[in-house]
Amino acid sequence: MATAILEINSSPGESQALPRLKYQRVLPGFGITLGFAIFYLSVIVLIPLSALLFKTLTLSPEQFITAVASPRVLASYRLTFGASALAASINLFIGLLLAWVLVRYEFPGKKFVDALIDLPFALPTAVAGIALTSLLAGNGWIGQYLEPYGIQIAFTPIGIVIALIFIGIPFVVRTVQPVLEDVEKELEEAATCLGASRLQIFIKIILPTITPALLTGFAMAFARAIGEYGSVIFIAGNMPMVSEITSLIIIGKLEQYDFAGATSVAIVMLVASFILLLIINLLQAWQRKRLGMKS
Protein backbone atom coordinates (compact mmCIF):
# COMPACT_ATOMS: atom_id res chain seq x y z
CA MET A 1 0.00 0.00 0.00
CA ALA A 2 1.24 3.44 -0.92
CA THR A 3 1.92 5.76 1.93
CA ALA A 4 2.10 9.10 0.13
CA ILE A 5 -0.58 11.56 1.12
CA LEU A 6 0.85 14.49 -0.78
CA GLU A 7 1.13 14.28 -4.48
CA ILE A 8 2.39 17.08 -6.62
CA ASN A 9 0.11 17.40 -9.54
CA SER A 10 2.20 17.89 -12.64
CA SER A 11 -0.30 17.63 -15.42
CA PRO A 12 0.40 20.45 -17.90
CA GLY A 13 -3.06 22.03 -17.80
CA GLU A 14 -2.89 22.68 -14.06
CA SER A 15 0.79 23.39 -13.75
CA GLN A 16 0.23 26.49 -11.66
CA ALA A 17 -2.03 24.76 -9.18
CA LEU A 18 -0.78 24.20 -5.67
CA PRO A 19 0.19 20.70 -4.61
CA ARG A 20 -3.16 18.98 -4.36
CA LEU A 21 -4.18 16.86 -1.41
CA LYS A 22 -5.14 13.48 -2.70
CA TYR A 23 -6.78 10.87 -0.50
CA GLN A 24 -5.14 7.52 -0.55
CA ARG A 25 -5.24 4.66 1.88
CA VAL A 26 -2.60 5.60 4.37
CA LEU A 27 -2.78 2.71 6.77
CA PRO A 28 -1.65 -0.66 5.56
CA GLY A 29 -3.37 -4.00 5.87
CA PHE A 30 -6.78 -3.21 4.43
CA GLY A 31 -6.87 -5.99 1.88
CA ILE A 32 -5.57 -8.75 4.11
CA THR A 33 -7.66 -7.89 7.19
CA LEU A 34 -10.94 -7.47 5.31
CA GLY A 35 -10.17 -10.52 3.21
CA PHE A 36 -9.52 -12.68 6.24
CA ALA A 37 -12.58 -11.37 8.10
CA ILE A 38 -14.87 -12.07 5.13
CA PHE A 39 -13.34 -15.53 4.62
CA TYR A 40 -13.82 -16.36 8.32
CA LEU A 41 -17.41 -15.09 8.36
CA SER A 42 -18.20 -17.08 5.23
CA VAL A 43 -16.76 -20.34 6.51
CA ILE A 44 -18.20 -20.12 10.01
CA VAL A 45 -21.50 -18.32 9.50
CA LEU A 46 -22.67 -17.67 5.96
CA ILE A 47 -22.03 -21.01 4.22
CA PRO A 48 -23.40 -23.17 7.07
CA LEU A 49 -26.45 -20.90 7.42
CA SER A 50 -27.10 -21.19 3.70
CA ALA A 51 -27.07 -24.98 4.15
CA LEU A 52 -30.25 -24.55 6.17
CA LEU A 53 -31.85 -22.69 3.29
CA PHE A 54 -30.74 -25.16 0.60
CA LYS A 55 -31.88 -28.11 2.67
CA THR A 56 -35.32 -26.50 3.01
CA LEU A 57 -35.50 -25.94 -0.75
CA THR A 58 -35.07 -29.68 -1.36
CA LEU A 59 -38.26 -30.44 0.59
CA SER A 60 -41.64 -30.70 -1.07
CA PRO A 61 -44.22 -28.15 0.09
CA GLU A 62 -46.27 -30.93 1.72
CA GLN A 63 -43.23 -32.17 3.64
CA PHE A 64 -42.51 -28.65 4.83
CA ILE A 65 -46.10 -27.90 5.89
CA THR A 66 -46.44 -31.24 7.72
CA ALA A 67 -43.23 -30.53 9.62
CA VAL A 68 -43.89 -26.92 10.61
CA ALA A 69 -47.65 -27.07 11.19
CA SER A 70 -48.31 -30.34 13.00
CA PRO A 71 -50.39 -29.81 16.17
CA ARG A 72 -47.43 -30.63 18.44
CA VAL A 73 -45.18 -28.09 16.68
CA LEU A 74 -47.93 -25.44 16.66
CA ALA A 75 -48.37 -25.95 20.40
CA SER A 76 -44.63 -25.42 20.84
CA TYR A 77 -44.77 -22.10 18.93
CA ARG A 78 -47.64 -20.90 21.11
CA LEU A 79 -45.71 -21.85 24.23
CA THR A 80 -42.35 -20.46 23.07
CA PHE A 81 -43.64 -17.15 21.72
CA GLY A 82 -46.27 -16.75 24.46
CA ALA A 83 -43.88 -17.44 27.34
CA SER A 84 -41.19 -15.25 25.72
CA ALA A 85 -43.62 -12.34 25.26
CA LEU A 86 -44.87 -12.65 28.83
CA ALA A 87 -41.34 -12.87 30.26
CA ALA A 88 -40.14 -9.91 28.17
CA SER A 89 -43.17 -7.86 29.30
CA ILE A 90 -42.46 -8.59 32.95
CA ASN A 91 -38.82 -7.70 32.32
CA LEU A 92 -39.98 -4.37 30.94
CA PHE A 93 -41.19 -3.42 34.42
CA ILE A 94 -38.46 -5.10 36.45
CA GLY A 95 -35.83 -3.69 34.08
CA LEU A 96 -37.20 -0.15 34.25
CA LEU A 97 -37.38 -0.34 38.04
CA LEU A 98 -33.79 -1.62 38.32
CA ALA A 99 -32.44 0.93 35.83
CA TRP A 100 -34.27 3.75 37.61
CA VAL A 101 -33.04 2.78 41.05
CA LEU A 102 -29.45 2.30 39.81
CA VAL A 103 -29.34 5.65 38.01
CA ARG A 104 -31.30 7.89 40.36
CA TYR A 105 -30.68 6.68 43.89
CA GLU A 106 -27.75 5.97 46.16
CA PHE A 107 -27.94 3.01 48.49
CA PRO A 108 -25.50 0.62 50.16
CA GLY A 109 -24.34 -2.20 47.88
CA LYS A 110 -25.29 -0.35 44.70
CA LYS A 111 -22.08 -1.27 42.85
CA PHE A 112 -22.58 -4.93 43.75
CA VAL A 113 -26.18 -4.89 42.50
CA ASP A 114 -25.07 -3.16 39.30
CA ALA A 115 -22.46 -5.87 38.64
CA LEU A 116 -24.90 -8.65 39.54
CA ILE A 117 -27.36 -7.49 36.83
CA ASP A 118 -25.09 -9.12 34.23
CA LEU A 119 -25.12 -12.49 35.99
CA PRO A 120 -27.59 -14.01 33.47
CA PHE A 121 -25.11 -13.12 30.68
CA ALA A 122 -22.19 -14.69 32.52
CA LEU A 123 -23.81 -17.73 34.15
CA PRO A 124 -23.98 -20.74 31.80
CA THR A 125 -27.61 -21.42 30.91
CA ALA A 126 -27.50 -25.03 32.11
CA VAL A 127 -26.38 -23.83 35.56
CA ALA A 128 -29.20 -21.29 35.68
CA GLY A 129 -31.61 -24.03 34.62
CA ILE A 130 -30.78 -26.50 37.36
CA ALA A 131 -30.53 -23.74 40.00
CA LEU A 132 -33.99 -22.36 39.21
CA THR A 133 -35.43 -25.87 39.04
CA SER A 134 -34.11 -26.85 42.45
CA LEU A 135 -35.30 -23.54 43.94
CA LEU A 136 -38.84 -23.94 42.64
CA ALA A 137 -39.30 -27.72 42.89
CA GLY A 138 -41.70 -28.93 45.58
CA ASN A 139 -38.89 -29.38 48.12
CA GLY A 140 -36.86 -26.32 47.07
CA TRP A 141 -36.18 -23.14 49.04
CA ILE A 142 -39.07 -21.32 47.37
CA GLY A 143 -41.14 -24.25 46.16
CA GLN A 144 -41.72 -25.62 49.66
CA TYR A 145 -43.68 -22.50 50.61
CA LEU A 146 -45.82 -22.68 47.49
CA GLU A 147 -46.59 -26.39 47.49
CA PRO A 148 -49.01 -26.34 50.48
CA TYR A 149 -51.15 -23.90 48.48
CA GLY A 150 -51.16 -26.20 45.46
CA ILE A 151 -48.98 -23.82 43.45
CA GLN A 152 -46.57 -25.67 41.21
CA ILE A 153 -44.03 -23.70 39.19
CA ALA A 154 -41.30 -26.15 38.25
CA PHE A 155 -42.22 -28.51 35.39
CA THR A 156 -45.06 -26.24 34.19
CA PRO A 157 -45.20 -23.40 31.64
CA ILE A 158 -44.93 -20.93 34.56
CA GLY A 159 -41.47 -22.36 35.24
CA ILE A 160 -40.52 -21.61 31.64
CA VAL A 161 -41.62 -17.99 32.08
CA ILE A 162 -39.52 -17.70 35.26
CA ALA A 163 -36.44 -19.06 33.47
CA LEU A 164 -36.98 -16.64 30.59
CA ILE A 165 -37.39 -13.71 32.99
CA PHE A 166 -34.04 -14.66 34.52
CA ILE A 167 -32.12 -14.72 31.23
CA GLY A 168 -33.80 -11.52 30.00
CA ILE A 169 -33.14 -9.27 33.03
CA PRO A 170 -29.95 -7.57 31.74
CA PHE A 171 -31.38 -6.51 28.37
CA VAL A 172 -33.91 -3.88 29.49
CA VAL A 173 -31.69 -2.62 32.32
CA ARG A 174 -28.63 -2.20 30.09
CA THR A 175 -30.51 -0.46 27.26
CA VAL A 176 -32.46 1.93 29.51
CA GLN A 177 -29.65 2.78 31.97
CA PRO A 178 -27.48 4.96 29.67
CA VAL A 179 -30.51 6.83 28.27
CA LEU A 180 -31.85 7.51 31.74
CA GLU A 181 -28.44 8.85 32.76
CA ASP A 182 -28.62 11.38 29.91
CA VAL A 183 -32.14 12.66 30.66
CA GLU A 184 -31.79 16.38 31.21
CA LYS A 185 -32.53 17.30 34.78
CA GLU A 186 -33.25 20.88 33.63
CA LEU A 187 -36.45 19.74 31.90
CA GLU A 188 -37.65 18.11 35.10
CA GLU A 189 -36.74 21.20 37.10
CA ALA A 190 -38.65 23.41 34.67
CA ALA A 191 -41.67 21.13 34.86
CA THR A 192 -41.51 21.15 38.64
CA CYS A 193 -41.43 24.94 38.65
CA LEU A 194 -44.48 24.96 36.41
CA GLY A 195 -46.32 22.85 38.95
CA ALA A 196 -46.08 19.32 37.53
CA SER A 197 -46.15 16.45 39.97
CA ARG A 198 -43.46 13.77 39.95
CA LEU A 199 -45.83 11.29 38.32
CA GLN A 200 -46.76 13.78 35.59
CA ILE A 201 -43.08 14.45 34.95
CA PHE A 202 -42.35 10.74 34.73
CA ILE A 203 -45.19 10.07 32.29
CA LYS A 204 -44.84 13.18 30.13
CA ILE A 205 -41.10 13.83 30.13
CA ILE A 206 -39.07 10.82 31.18
CA LEU A 207 -41.15 8.02 29.69
CA PRO A 208 -41.23 9.43 26.13
CA THR A 209 -37.44 9.86 26.23
CA ILE A 210 -36.74 6.28 27.28
CA THR A 211 -39.50 4.60 25.24
CA PRO A 212 -37.23 3.63 22.30
CA ALA A 213 -34.70 2.15 24.73
CA LEU A 214 -37.42 0.30 26.63
CA LEU A 215 -38.80 -1.20 23.42
CA THR A 216 -35.29 -2.13 22.22
CA GLY A 217 -34.64 -3.92 25.51
CA PHE A 218 -38.01 -5.65 25.26
CA ALA A 219 -37.30 -6.84 21.70
CA MET A 220 -33.80 -8.07 22.66
CA ALA A 221 -35.13 -9.98 25.68
CA PHE A 222 -37.89 -11.45 23.52
CA ALA A 223 -35.46 -12.47 20.76
CA ARG A 224 -33.14 -14.09 23.26
CA ALA A 225 -36.05 -15.91 24.92
CA ILE A 226 -37.46 -17.56 21.79
CA GLY A 227 -34.12 -19.22 21.08
CA GLU A 228 -33.31 -20.08 24.69
CA TYR A 229 -32.69 -23.74 25.40
CA GLY A 230 -30.34 -24.51 28.30
CA SER A 231 -32.10 -22.70 31.13
CA VAL A 232 -35.56 -23.83 30.03
CA ILE A 233 -35.32 -27.58 29.46
CA PHE A 234 -34.61 -28.45 33.09
CA ILE A 235 -37.52 -26.52 34.52
CA ALA A 236 -40.00 -27.09 31.69
CA GLY A 237 -40.96 -30.71 32.28
CA ASN A 238 -40.99 -31.04 28.49
CA MET A 239 -44.46 -32.56 28.09
CA PRO A 240 -45.56 -32.63 24.43
CA MET A 241 -48.38 -30.15 23.73
CA VAL A 242 -48.01 -28.60 27.20
CA SER A 243 -44.47 -27.61 28.10
CA GLU A 244 -42.32 -28.49 25.09
CA ILE A 245 -40.48 -25.51 23.57
CA THR A 246 -39.66 -25.24 19.86
CA SER A 247 -35.89 -25.66 20.37
CA LEU A 248 -36.59 -29.00 22.02
CA ILE A 249 -38.78 -30.03 19.07
CA ILE A 250 -35.78 -29.42 16.78
CA ILE A 251 -33.52 -31.53 19.02
CA GLY A 252 -36.17 -34.28 19.21
CA LYS A 253 -36.46 -34.43 15.43
CA LEU A 254 -32.67 -34.54 15.09
CA GLU A 255 -32.43 -37.43 17.53
CA GLN A 256 -34.89 -39.36 15.35
CA TYR A 257 -32.75 -38.52 12.27
CA ASP A 258 -35.65 -36.46 10.86
CA PHE A 259 -33.32 -33.88 9.30
CA ALA A 260 -36.02 -32.53 6.97
CA GLY A 261 -38.37 -31.89 9.89
CA ALA A 262 -35.67 -30.35 12.08
CA THR A 263 -34.57 -28.07 9.23
CA SER A 264 -38.12 -26.92 8.49
CA VAL A 265 -38.83 -25.94 12.09
CA ALA A 266 -35.39 -24.33 12.34
CA ILE A 267 -36.14 -22.16 9.29
CA VAL A 268 -39.31 -20.91 10.97
CA MET A 269 -37.29 -19.99 14.08
CA LEU A 270 -34.57 -18.36 11.98
CA VAL A 271 -37.06 -16.21 10.06
CA ALA A 272 -38.64 -15.13 13.36
CA SER A 273 -35.17 -14.20 14.70
CA PHE A 274 -34.32 -12.19 11.58
CA ILE A 275 -37.61 -10.27 11.71
CA LEU A 276 -36.83 -9.43 15.34
CA LEU A 277 -33.28 -8.40 14.42
CA LEU A 278 -34.73 -6.03 11.82
CA ILE A 279 -37.18 -4.58 14.37
CA ILE A 280 -34.35 -4.11 16.89
CA ASN A 281 -32.25 -2.28 14.27
CA LEU A 282 -35.19 0.01 13.42
CA LEU A 283 -35.80 0.71 17.11
CA GLN A 284 -32.14 1.57 17.62
CA ALA A 285 -32.23 3.93 14.63
CA TRP A 286 -35.31 5.58 16.15
CA GLN A 287 -33.51 5.93 19.45
CA ARG A 288 -30.47 7.53 17.82
CA LYS A 289 -32.77 9.96 16.02
CA ARG A 290 -34.53 10.83 19.26
CA LEU A 291 -31.28 11.45 21.10
CA GLY A 292 -29.76 13.24 18.13
CA MET A 293 -32.66 15.68 17.97
CA LYS A 294 -32.23 16.59 21.59
CA SER A 295 -28.60 17.57 21.60
Binding site: V45, I47, P48, L49, A51, L52, K55, A223, I226, G227, E228, Y229, G230, S247, I250, I251, L254, F259, A262, T263, A266, M269, L270, S273, F274, L276, L277
Partner: peptide
Protein backbone atom coordinates in the same frame (compact mmCIF):
# COMPACT_ATOMS: atom_id res chain seq x y z
CA UNK B 1 -24.70 -15.30 15.32
CA UNK B 2 -26.31 -13.45 18.26
CA UNK B 3 -29.72 -13.69 16.62
CA UNK B 4 -29.48 -17.35 15.68
CA UNK B 5 -30.74 -19.63 18.44
CA UNK B 6 -28.06 -22.01 19.81
CA UNK B 7 -29.89 -25.15 18.76
CA UNK B 8 -30.22 -23.87 15.19
CA UNK B 9 -26.51 -22.98 15.28
CA UNK B 10 -25.68 -26.59 16.12
CA UNK B 11 -28.09 -27.89 13.49
CA UNK B 12 -26.47 -26.02 10.59
CA UNK B 13 -23.17 -27.85 11.18
CA UNK B 14 -24.97 -31.18 11.28
CA UNK B 15 -26.39 -30.29 7.85
CA UNK B 16 -22.92 -29.44 6.51
Amino acid sequence: PFSVSPVVAGLIYVLV
